[in-house]
């Protein structure tokens, strides 16, 4: 889920003193929508087909390009690329590594890839998104928590009312959870009747959120007047206590998520609404 896996490597570039006509010719022949602009091999801008349409064909690239180029490295995540493109209203990113241009990432390639990580039934992201977000929080050395929520006796609903009602319930759960989606909380459908919330906050905030979720489940009017409850496993990460580096970060996070999943199962066994484990 890093840019390196989907970017177009070694893109063609154009010198800033080349003509706009030349840039247009290259783009047309190679069927590409933009060219990074270089001056002495240093990135100084980007010229897109839109820039070309707006410029007099006699101009040099320096007078038609966009100077503020937004760049990322090949090791940034797809979600970081998506945020950057959406926040800046741009269609492509130049990918650089130690001042060298190593690739280009277009919005269409990015969205095609991100689409693979979206759940068809609920429109929610899959776990890959949450893991990438968690990695970001971990790298920032901030405490965070996974809340693994698993519906109680969902198998019986499927058996007694059929999969269609089961799917309706899953969709209702996703809508209910989406109400909690904000700057501090990211949500995904983990699989089946399991959803995970990633909270940018420690134990106290996580427990408060779990209580709110449980209350919301209890007060919601469910399809077929069903009684739907959930058990929540909370796993809290205090990164300042750990020797975490970029190499073991991913395995630390997956281990934490696993602990949250087990805590959810144990909460069911112990007949409690939530259970907290700290890492």
């Amino acid at each position: 889920m890093i840019i390196k896996d989907i970017m177009t490597p070694d893109p063609l570039t154009i010198n800033l003193l080349s003509g706009v006509k030349r840039a247009e010719q290259i783009m047309r022949e190679k069927k590409i929508g933009s060219l990074p602009v270089v001056d002495n091999e240093k990135l100084v801008g980007i010229i897109t087909s839109r820039d070309i349409r707006r410029s007099h064909p006699n101009r040099i690239v320096a007078d038609a390009m966009t100077s503020n180029v937004i760049v990322l490295t090949p090791y940034n995540t797809l979600w970081e690329a998506k945020d950057l493109m959406e926040n800046n209203g741009i269609e492509r990113l130049v990918i650089t590594n130690k001042d060298s241009i190593v690739g280009i990432l277009t919005k269409s390639d990015l969205y095609k890839e991100i689409g693979k990580y979206i759940d068809n039934l609920t429109g929610m992201y899959r776990k890959e998104y949450l893991l990438a977000e968690a990695l970001r929080l971990l790298e920032n050395n901030k405490p965070f928590s996974f809340l693994f929520t698993d519906l109680d006796k969902f198998g019986e609903i499927d058996k007694n009312f059929g999969h269609e009602i089961g799917d309706k319930i899953i969709t209702e759960v996703s809508r209910l959870l989406k109400k909690f989606d904000n700057d501090k909380i990211s949500i995904c459908r983990f699989g089946g009747d399991e959803f995970v919330l990633l909270l940018d906050g420690g134990k106290e905030s996580a427990v408060n959120l779990a209580i709110k979720l449980i209350d919301e489940f209890q007060s919601h009017q469910w399809t077929n007047h069903l009684d739907i409850h959930t058990s929540i496993g909370i796993a809290v990460m205090n990164p300042q206590n750990k020797s975490i580096n970029s190499e073991n970060g991913y395995s630390v996070i997956t281990e934490l998520l696993n602990k949250a999943s087990i805590a959810s199962t144990n909460a069911k066994k112990l007949s409690v609404k939530y259970l907290v484990v700290e890492f």
Binding site: L16, L17, S55, H56, N58, R59, I60, A62, D63, A64
Partner: peptide
């Protein structure tokens, strides 16, 4: 704005 020579070319 749409002159055949842009400001950077003129400056150079």
């Amino acid at each position: 704005k749409n002159a055949p020579i842009g400001p950077e070319a003129a400056r150079r």
